[in-house]
Protein backbone atom coordinates (compact mmCIF):
# COMPACT_ATOMS: atom_id res chain seq x y z
CA UNK A 1 0.00 0.00 0.00
CA UNK A 2 2.78 2.45 0.90
CA UNK A 3 4.56 1.42 -2.21
CA UNK A 4 1.47 2.16 -4.26
CA UNK A 5 0.99 5.59 -2.65
CA UNK A 6 4.60 6.45 -3.26
CA UNK A 7 4.34 5.53 -6.88
CA UNK A 8 1.10 7.48 -7.22
CA UNK A 9 2.48 10.67 -5.68
CA UNK A 10 5.70 10.40 -7.64
CA UNK A 11 3.86 9.66 -10.89
CA UNK A 12 2.93 11.82 -13.87
CA UNK A 13 -0.76 11.93 -13.00
CA UNK A 14 -0.21 13.57 -9.63
CA UNK A 15 2.34 15.93 -11.09
CA UNK A 16 0.03 17.15 -13.83
CA UNK A 17 -2.75 17.53 -11.24
CA UNK A 18 -0.59 19.66 -8.98
CA UNK A 19 0.64 21.91 -11.75
CA UNK A 20 -2.82 23.16 -12.71
CA UNK A 21 -4.58 25.41 -10.17
CA UNK A 22 -7.89 25.29 -12.03
CA UNK A 23 -7.99 21.51 -11.77
CA UNK A 24 -7.22 21.69 -8.05
CA UNK A 25 -10.10 24.15 -7.51
CA UNK A 26 -12.43 21.92 -9.56
CA UNK A 27 -11.38 18.85 -7.58
CA UNK A 28 -11.91 20.58 -4.24
CA UNK A 29 -15.33 21.86 -5.35
CA UNK A 30 -16.41 18.41 -6.47
CA UNK A 31 -15.12 16.87 -3.28
CA UNK A 32 -16.88 19.45 -1.06
CA UNK A 33 -20.18 18.94 -2.87
CA UNK A 34 -19.99 15.16 -2.67
CA UNK A 35 -18.88 15.27 0.97
CA UNK A 36 -21.51 17.76 2.15
CA UNK A 37 -24.36 15.95 0.42
CA UNK A 38 -23.21 12.57 1.70
CA UNK A 39 -23.14 13.93 5.24
CA UNK A 40 -26.11 16.25 4.77
CA UNK A 41 -27.65 15.13 8.05
CA UNK A 42 -24.62 16.57 9.87
CA UNK A 43 -23.76 19.53 7.64
CA UNK A 44 -27.21 20.89 6.84
CA UNK A 45 -28.78 23.34 9.31
CA UNK A 46 -32.20 21.61 9.15
CA UNK A 47 -33.41 18.08 8.54
CA UNK A 48 -35.89 18.47 5.72
CA UNK A 49 -37.43 15.07 6.39
CA UNK A 50 -38.32 16.03 9.94
CA UNK A 51 -41.73 17.72 9.79
CA UNK A 52 -41.26 19.33 13.18
CA UNK A 53 -38.32 21.37 11.94
CA UNK A 54 -40.17 23.52 9.43
CA UNK A 55 -43.16 25.77 9.56
CA UNK A 56 -45.46 27.04 6.87
CA UNK A 57 -45.19 30.46 8.52
CA UNK A 58 -41.58 30.61 7.35
CA UNK A 59 -42.47 29.93 3.71
CA UNK A 60 -41.04 32.00 0.83
CA UNK A 61 -38.51 33.91 2.89
CA UNK A 62 -35.78 35.55 0.78
CA UNK A 63 -32.02 34.98 1.34
CA UNK A 64 -30.44 36.48 4.41
CA UNK A 65 -28.93 39.58 2.78
CA UNK A 66 -32.29 40.78 1.47
CA UNK A 67 -35.05 42.64 3.24
CA UNK A 68 -37.25 40.26 5.28
CA UNK A 69 -34.43 37.71 5.25
CA UNK A 70 -33.68 35.76 8.43
CA UNK A 71 -30.30 34.64 9.74
CA UNK A 72 -31.63 31.12 10.23
CA UNK A 73 -32.35 30.68 6.53
CA UNK A 74 -29.11 31.53 4.73
CA UNK A 75 -30.48 31.11 1.20
CA UNK A 76 -34.14 31.69 2.03
CA UNK A 77 -36.98 29.17 2.22
CA UNK A 78 -39.30 27.47 -0.27
CA UNK A 79 -43.09 27.38 -0.48
CA UNK A 80 -43.34 24.87 2.37
CA UNK A 81 -41.03 26.81 4.65
CA UNK A 82 -38.06 24.50 4.13
CA UNK A 83 -34.56 25.98 4.24
CA UNK A 84 -33.24 26.15 0.62
CA UNK A 85 -29.64 25.44 1.67
CA UNK A 86 -30.70 22.27 3.47
CA UNK A 87 -32.86 21.09 0.59
CA UNK A 88 -29.96 21.63 -1.80
CA UNK A 89 -27.65 19.58 0.41
CA UNK A 90 -30.13 16.74 0.79
CA UNK A 91 -31.26 17.08 -2.82
CA UNK A 92 -27.78 16.73 -4.31
CA UNK A 93 -27.57 13.32 -2.64
CA UNK A 94 -30.09 11.82 -5.02
CA UNK A 95 -28.87 13.87 -7.97
CA UNK A 96 -25.26 12.83 -7.48
CA UNK A 97 -26.14 9.18 -6.92
CA UNK A 98 -28.32 9.03 -9.99
CA UNK A 99 -25.95 11.16 -12.07
CA UNK A 100 -22.72 9.32 -11.36
CA UNK A 101 -24.07 5.79 -11.30
CA UNK A 102 -26.22 6.12 -14.40
CA UNK A 103 -23.34 7.73 -16.34
CA UNK A 104 -20.89 5.05 -15.21
CA UNK A 105 -23.21 2.16 -16.06
CA UNK A 106 -24.17 3.73 -19.41
CA UNK A 107 -20.47 4.22 -20.12
CA UNK A 108 -19.54 0.64 -19.32
CA UNK A 109 -22.40 -0.74 -21.37
CA UNK A 110 -21.75 1.62 -24.29
CA UNK A 111 -18.00 0.98 -24.35
CA UNK A 112 -18.42 -2.79 -24.35
CA UNK A 113 -20.99 -2.73 -27.15
CA UNK A 114 -19.01 -0.15 -29.12
CA UNK A 115 -15.75 -2.10 -28.85
CA UNK A 116 -17.38 -5.35 -29.92
CA UNK A 117 -19.27 -3.75 -32.81
CA UNK A 118 -16.29 -1.78 -34.06
CA UNK A 119 -13.80 -4.63 -33.78
CA UNK A 120 -15.86 -7.51 -35.16
CA UNK A 121 -17.66 -5.60 -37.91
CA UNK A 122 -19.92 -7.59 -40.22
CA UNK A 123 -23.31 -8.74 -38.99
CA UNK A 124 -22.45 -8.32 -35.29
CA UNK A 125 -21.80 -4.65 -35.96
CA UNK A 126 -24.91 -4.34 -38.11
CA UNK A 127 -27.22 -5.85 -35.49
CA UNK A 128 -25.79 -3.86 -32.57
CA UNK A 129 -25.82 -0.59 -34.44
CA UNK A 130 -29.40 -1.06 -35.72
CA UNK A 131 -30.48 -1.58 -32.10
CA UNK A 132 -28.65 1.62 -31.25
CA UNK A 133 -30.32 3.43 -34.15
CA UNK A 134 -33.77 2.33 -33.06
CA UNK A 135 -33.07 3.50 -29.56
CA UNK A 136 -31.64 6.78 -30.80
CA UNK A 137 -34.85 7.54 -32.67
CA UNK A 138 -36.79 7.67 -29.38
CA UNK A 139 -36.23 10.56 -26.97
CA UNK A 140 -34.20 9.52 -23.95
CA UNK A 141 -37.08 10.48 -21.65
CA UNK A 142 -39.44 8.11 -23.43
CA UNK A 143 -37.08 5.18 -23.07
CA UNK A 144 -36.52 5.99 -19.43
CA UNK A 145 -40.29 6.15 -18.93
CA UNK A 146 -40.72 2.79 -20.64
CA UNK A 147 -37.99 1.05 -18.66
CA UNK A 148 -39.23 2.67 -15.50
CA UNK A 149 -42.79 1.51 -16.21
CA UNK A 150 -41.77 -2.08 -16.88
CA UNK A 151 -39.52 -2.38 -13.85
CA UNK A 152 -42.01 -0.71 -11.51
CA UNK A 153 -44.70 -3.05 -12.79
CA UNK A 154 -42.58 -6.05 -11.91
CA UNK A 155 -41.78 -4.85 -8.41
CA UNK A 156 -44.20 -5.25 -5.49
CA UNK A 157 -45.82 -1.99 -4.36
CA UNK A 158 -44.03 -1.49 -1.06
CA UNK A 159 -40.59 -1.98 -2.61
CA UNK A 160 -41.24 0.66 -5.26
CA UNK A 161 -40.52 3.73 -3.15
CA UNK A 162 -37.29 2.24 -1.74
CA UNK A 163 -36.01 1.01 -5.07
CA UNK A 164 -37.15 4.04 -7.07
CA UNK A 165 -33.65 5.47 -7.25
CA UNK A 166 -32.12 2.26 -8.63
CA UNK A 167 -34.88 2.00 -11.19
CA UNK A 168 -34.02 5.54 -12.23
CA UNK A 169 -30.36 4.66 -12.63
CA UNK A 170 -31.15 1.65 -14.80
CA UNK A 171 -33.66 3.61 -16.86
CA UNK A 172 -31.32 6.53 -17.51
CA UNK A 173 -28.30 4.40 -18.30
CA UNK A 174 -30.32 2.29 -20.73
CA UNK A 175 -31.25 5.41 -22.62
CA UNK A 176 -27.76 6.95 -22.57
CA UNK A 177 -25.49 4.11 -23.71
CA UNK A 178 -26.04 4.72 -27.42
CA UNK A 179 -23.82 7.78 -27.59
CA UNK A 180 -20.88 5.96 -26.05
CA UNK A 181 -21.43 2.93 -28.25
CA UNK A 182 -21.46 4.98 -31.46
CA UNK A 183 -18.41 7.04 -30.52
CA UNK A 184 -16.40 4.06 -29.34
CA UNK A 185 -17.40 2.02 -32.38
CA UNK A 186 -16.17 4.60 -34.87
CA UNK A 187 -12.88 5.17 -33.03
CA UNK A 188 -12.40 1.42 -32.72
CA UNK A 189 -12.85 0.97 -36.44
CA UNK A 190 -10.04 3.47 -37.01
CA UNK A 191 -7.72 1.97 -34.38
CA UNK A 192 -8.39 -1.62 -35.46
CA UNK A 193 -6.58 -1.14 -38.77
CA UNK A 194 -3.49 0.40 -37.19
CA UNK A 195 -0.34 -1.64 -37.14
CA UNK A 196 0.03 -1.78 -33.36
CA UNK A 197 -3.16 -3.84 -33.25
CA UNK A 198 -1.78 -6.17 -35.91
CA UNK A 199 1.42 -6.42 -33.89
CA UNK A 200 -0.64 -7.54 -30.90
CA UNK A 201 -2.38 -10.12 -33.10
CA UNK A 202 0.96 -11.45 -34.29
CA UNK A 203 2.10 -11.81 -30.68
CA UNK A 204 -0.99 -13.99 -30.24
CA UNK A 205 -2.96 -11.94 -27.76
CA UNK A 206 -6.62 -13.03 -27.57
CA UNK A 207 -9.22 -10.60 -28.83
CA UNK A 208 -10.58 -9.42 -25.44
CA UNK A 209 -7.07 -8.56 -24.29
CA UNK A 210 -6.37 -6.60 -27.48
CA UNK A 211 -9.61 -4.69 -27.00
CA UNK A 212 -8.98 -3.88 -23.34
CA UNK A 213 -5.26 -3.28 -23.28
CA UNK A 214 -4.61 -1.76 -26.67
CA UNK A 215 -7.73 -0.31 -28.21
CA UNK A 216 -9.65 0.90 -25.13
CA UNK A 217 -6.97 3.33 -23.89
CA UNK A 218 -6.79 4.82 -27.37
CA UNK A 219 -10.53 5.46 -27.68
CA UNK A 220 -11.14 6.84 -24.17
CA UNK A 221 -10.56 10.53 -25.03
CA UNK A 222 -13.97 11.37 -26.53
CA UNK A 223 -15.71 9.03 -24.07
CA UNK A 224 -14.57 11.10 -21.09
CA UNK A 225 -15.82 14.27 -22.76
CA UNK A 226 -19.26 12.75 -23.40
CA UNK A 227 -19.37 11.41 -19.85
CA UNK A 228 -18.83 14.81 -18.27
CA UNK A 229 -21.55 16.35 -20.44
CA UNK A 230 -23.94 13.48 -19.82
CA UNK A 231 -23.56 13.82 -16.07
CA UNK A 232 -25.54 17.08 -16.27
CA UNK A 233 -28.03 15.51 -18.68
CA UNK A 234 -28.58 12.57 -16.35
CA UNK A 235 -29.29 14.86 -13.42
CA UNK A 236 -31.81 16.83 -15.52
CA UNK A 237 -33.42 13.63 -16.83
CA UNK A 238 -33.84 12.40 -13.28
CA UNK A 239 -35.57 15.71 -12.47
CA UNK A 240 -37.87 15.36 -15.46
CA UNK A 241 -38.79 11.80 -14.56
CA UNK A 242 -39.43 12.78 -10.96
CA UNK A 243 -41.56 15.69 -12.18
CA UNK A 244 -43.59 13.28 -14.30
CA UNK A 245 -44.20 11.28 -11.18
CA UNK A 246 -42.21 8.19 -12.15
CA UNK A 247 -39.00 9.02 -10.32
CA UNK A 248 -38.31 9.52 -6.65
CA UNK A 249 -41.33 10.65 -4.57
CA UNK A 250 -41.70 14.44 -4.03
CA UNK A 251 -41.01 13.98 -0.33
CA UNK A 252 -37.37 13.20 -1.06
CA UNK A 253 -36.36 16.06 -3.33
CA UNK A 254 -33.46 16.12 -5.74
CA UNK A 255 -31.75 19.14 -7.31
CA UNK A 256 -33.89 18.70 -10.39
CA UNK A 257 -37.20 18.63 -8.52
CA UNK A 258 -36.14 21.71 -6.57
CA UNK A 259 -35.45 23.59 -9.80
CA UNK A 260 -38.82 22.51 -11.20
CA UNK A 261 -40.75 23.48 -8.08
CA UNK A 262 -38.92 26.80 -7.97
CA UNK A 263 -39.80 27.52 -11.57
CA UNK A 264 -43.41 28.05 -10.60
CA UNK A 265 -42.41 30.84 -8.25
CA UNK A 266 -39.98 32.56 -10.58
CA UNK A 267 -42.52 35.04 -11.96
CA UNK A 268 -43.92 35.93 -8.58
CA UNK A 269 -40.48 37.18 -7.54
CA UNK A 270 -39.27 34.26 -5.39
CA UNK A 271 -36.28 33.60 -7.64
CA UNK A 272 -34.09 32.03 -4.96
CA UNK A 273 -36.00 28.77 -4.84
CA UNK A 274 -34.91 27.87 -8.36
CA UNK A 275 -31.70 29.89 -8.78
CA UNK A 276 -29.70 28.40 -5.91
CA UNK A 277 -30.31 24.73 -6.77
CA UNK A 278 -29.61 25.70 -10.39
CA UNK A 279 -26.33 27.34 -9.39
CA UNK A 280 -25.36 24.26 -7.39
CA UNK A 281 -25.99 22.12 -10.48
CA UNK A 282 -23.99 24.46 -12.74
CA UNK A 283 -21.03 24.54 -10.36
CA UNK A 284 -21.05 20.75 -9.98
CA UNK A 285 -21.23 20.13 -13.73
CA UNK A 286 -18.55 22.72 -14.49
CA UNK A 287 -16.20 21.22 -11.89
CA UNK A 288 -16.73 17.71 -13.21
CA UNK A 289 -16.22 18.94 -16.77
CA UNK A 290 -12.89 20.52 -15.89
CA UNK A 291 -11.83 17.34 -14.11
CA UNK A 292 -12.89 15.24 -17.09
CA UNK A 293 -10.95 17.39 -19.57
CA UNK A 294 -7.89 17.28 -17.38
CA UNK A 295 -8.11 13.51 -17.01
CA UNK A 296 -8.41 13.09 -20.78
CA UNK A 297 -5.27 15.13 -21.39
CA UNK A 298 -3.36 13.68 -18.45
CA UNK A 299 -3.97 10.15 -19.70
CA UNK A 300 -2.61 11.02 -23.14
CA UNK A 301 1.17 10.61 -22.98
CA UNK A 302 1.63 12.77 -26.08
CA UNK A 303 0.38 15.87 -24.27
CA UNK A 304 2.60 15.56 -21.24
Amino acid sequence: MRDFLQRFFGGDLWWSFRSSPMVIVAAITTFVMIFSSAFANIVAPYDIFDLTQFNLMDSLKPPVWMERGEVGFLLGTDDQGRDVLSTILYGSRISLLVGFFSVISAMVLGIIIGLIAGYSGGWVDAVLMRIADVQLSFPAILIALLVNGIISGLLPGEAQADLAIYVLIVAISLSFWVQYARTVRSSTMVERTKEYVQAAQVIGLPQPLILLRHILPNVMGPVLVIATIQLALAIITEATLSFLGVGVPPTSPSLGTLIRIGNDYLFSGEWWITVFPGLALVILVLAVNILGDWLRDALNPKLR
Partner: peptide, 24 residues
Amino acid sequence: QINIYRRQMQMIFQDPFSSLNARM
Protein backbone atom coordinates in the same frame (compact mmCIF):
# COMPACT_ATOMS: atom_id res chain seq x y z
CA GLN B 1 -1.85 -24.77 -30.85
CA ILE B 2 -1.68 -21.70 -33.05
CA ASN B 3 0.03 -19.64 -30.35
CA ILE B 4 2.93 -22.11 -30.21
CA TYR B 5 3.67 -21.18 -33.82
CA ARG B 6 2.76 -17.53 -33.48
CA ARG B 7 5.56 -17.23 -30.95
CA GLN B 8 8.04 -18.52 -33.47
CA MET B 9 7.21 -15.97 -36.13
CA GLN B 10 7.13 -12.22 -35.69
CA MET B 11 6.65 -9.23 -37.88
CA ILE B 12 8.20 -5.78 -38.19
CA PHE B 13 5.84 -3.23 -39.68
CA GLN B 14 6.28 -0.43 -42.15
CA ASP B 15 4.96 2.58 -40.31
CA PRO B 16 6.97 3.23 -37.15
CA PHE B 17 4.37 5.77 -36.03
CA SER B 18 1.33 3.53 -35.92
CA SER B 19 2.94 0.21 -35.06
CA LEU B 20 3.50 1.11 -31.41
CA ASN B 21 0.64 1.73 -28.99
CA ALA B 22 1.00 5.40 -28.06
CA ARG B 23 -0.51 4.87 -24.62
CA MET B 24 2.00 2.28 -23.42
